[in-house]
Structures are given as C-alpha cells and as structure tokens.
Computed example of a mutant assay.
Amino acid sequence: MVAPLIDPRIKLRHLVCFIEVARLKSVVNAAQVLHISQPAASKTIQELEQVLGGNLFDRSKRNLFLTPFGEVFYRYASTSLAALRQGMDAARDTHEATIVRVGALPTVSARLLPDAVKAFTATGSGVHTRVITGPNDHLLTLLRTGDVDFVIGRMAEPDAMVGLSFEHLYSERVVMVVRAGHPLLSERRFDLSMIEPYQTLMPTPNSLIRRLVDRMLLTHGITKLRDEVETISDAFGRAYLGQTDAVWIISEGVVARDLEQGRLALLPVDTSETIGPVGLTMRTDTASTLAADSLKQAVRDIAARLR
C-alpha cells in the first residue's frame, strides 16, 4: 500500500492561517485578516503543530517569531501556495490569468513604475496590471504565496531572501526634503542638528531604510528629533509638508518628481552612506509567465535611464 504524499490532516486553512500569523507575528491580527475568531486561529496553529510534531512559533515574547523548525516549514508552505495559485490561474484560463501582479515599494511606485506600466500597456497585449504597494516584509510574503508575480524595491536582508533572487537595476539614496520656502533653506551654514526643532517624518520601523536612517542620524549626533511621525505613505508626506515645516526623510525616488517640479527641496546633507540597491525580487522555484516577463523588461528599460 502506497503511503499518502501529504498527511490528510493538513488542510489548506492550516497553511493559510500559518502564513498569515508568520507574516503579522500575531494570532490576533491574523484572525482579523482571515475573518475568523482568535480562538479559531490559535486552534488551527495548534492542530498544525501537532501534525508536524514541533513548535512553529516562539511564544516567549510579545510578538510571535518563527522557530528554526517554523522557518523551514514556512519556506515550503509559502512556495506550495504560490504554485497552487499559479496552477489554478493557468488551468482556469480566465481573466485572472491575464493579470500581472506587481508588488512595489513607494520609491518605485512614484518614480519607476508609472513609465514602465505605460510602456507595457502600450503594446496592446490586453494584459491587465495590478499594482500592490506596502512595506517590504508584506510584499515579500505576497511574493512567496503567489499573490504577486514579482516585487520591485530595495534588496531585503539576506535572511529574508531564502528562495528568492534579486536583480539589481540601480542604486538610490535616502534624502531629507522640505517644502519650498522652508526656513532651513535660507541657512547659510546649514548643520544637520538644525533639524531637531522641526517635526520629522520618519520611515516606519519595518521599512528597509529605517535602519540606515537611524545610523545616519546617530553618526551626526542627532538624538532629539521632535514629534516624530512614522509613515511610508508618499501621499501623506506630500500633503503634510505642504501644510507644515516638517522635515521628511525618505527614499529619493519617492520625491524625485516633486524635486524636479520645485514643490519640495533638498536639505544640503550628505546621505551617501544610505545608498542601496533597488531591483527586482523574484521567486526561484516557479516559472514566470510571459506577461510578467514582459512587464519586467519594461521595468528594466526604464531603470536603465536612471543609472
């Protein structure tokens, strides 16, 4: 008698719940996203752990973190869901199969992606484009589960790149910008400490550039920023700077066109230490569709102009 390939006690709901808890590091938040109760989510994770014979999460801290055992299972579970979704789309041969889903950080949503999508749709292929934005860890989770075909943004930390590949397109720095006519722009001998009396818009803690920003500020002895506002929303940043004297610390690509058009201005700060690679992040274990490859090529063509 041939043994079953997969333990029949493992259901799709187990995998979906596990991946959401791993992404959000919280059973409560995962339950809300999945529209189930917290006890139901907890029970689902416990059932999965019993079947697998090991603890998937370290529960000794406030947030849940994957154990080494959980890390291994996460890579295979997310890959399995991605392959299943891709297979369903191909089998259905419906409208969903003609959509290219791209995850994009704000830095490329404003600077690179509009021109790339414009060039891609100009081919008249009839393929639709779905752009999903958000923090990098969220986008990588969507990539692993097949909810996006690829991600465009900064390269993630090495431990987050297991099962993924990165293709460098160009490099980008973090900048400090203010509204046109800001008092700091008239300082003859500008010093970075001069930003301390002003409110500051900072990247969120889970953003890739936050660590670079914190290190840069510490290097210059900046430890007393006033009334920090943490955001990765470019729409909020633009609106807030239009109404206040706040200083916005953000990837240059997000505000490149605002700087070109004179709505915002750079503070004279050397931020070269924050330069980092921007590119395509893709799964290594599933084949890309022809439509996704076409959009990726459009992205490459536009990125070549930014080097």
Rank of each mutant, 00 (worst) to 15 (best):
H128R: 10
Y76R: 15
A97S: 11
A31H: 06
V151P: 03
I250K: 03
S165Y: 10
I45A: 04
L192V: 11
L185E: 07
Y170F: 13
D93M: 09
Y74D: 12
T145P: 06
L184S: 05
F190W: 08
L192H: 03
M155H: 10
M202C: 00
L241A: 00
V28D: 10
F236H: 12
L48D: 01
Q199G: 02
S125D: 10
S272Q: 07
P106M: 03
L143G: 02
L34A: 01
D293L: 13
N29W: 05
T123R: 15
S165N: 11
L5S: 14
H128C: 07
G221S: 02
E157G: 10
P39C: 02
R59L: 03
I249G: 00
R188P: 04
G242K: 08
I250S: 02
E47S: 07
G146A: 02
S251Y: 00
A304V: 01
L184N: 08
A97M: 06
A265P: 01
T289A: 11
M216E: 13
P268K: 09
A235W: 15
S60L: 08
G70M: 07
F57A: 05
V127C: 09
A160C: 03
R59H: 12
R283C: 03
L267I: 03
A256T: 04
R9A: 10
T121R: 15
I45E: 08
S233Y: 12
T271E: 06
T67A: 15
V72S: 14
E187R: 15
I209Y: 05
A239G: 13
T244S: 02
A265N: 07
W248F: 05
H220E: 04
T94Y: 14
R307C: 04
R75S: 11
I132T: 10
Q50S: 13
A291Y: 07
L140K: 06
S37P: 00
D115E: 14
T98C: 04
I275D: 15
T79G: 13
N206H: 14
S80K: 11
E260R: 13
A292D: 02
N55W: 01
I152F: 05
F18C: 00
E49C: 05
R154G: 15
T281S: 12
I19H: 08
D285S: 07
F69S: 13
A40P: 00
A180C: 04
Q38W: 03
L142N: 02
P203V: 01
R173W: 02
E96N: 09
L185A: 06
G262D: 03
A3P: 08
D227Y: 11
R101H: 08
I195L: 02
L34F: 06
L201I: 01
M88F: 12
V213S: 04
R211G: 06
F166R: 10
G253E: 00
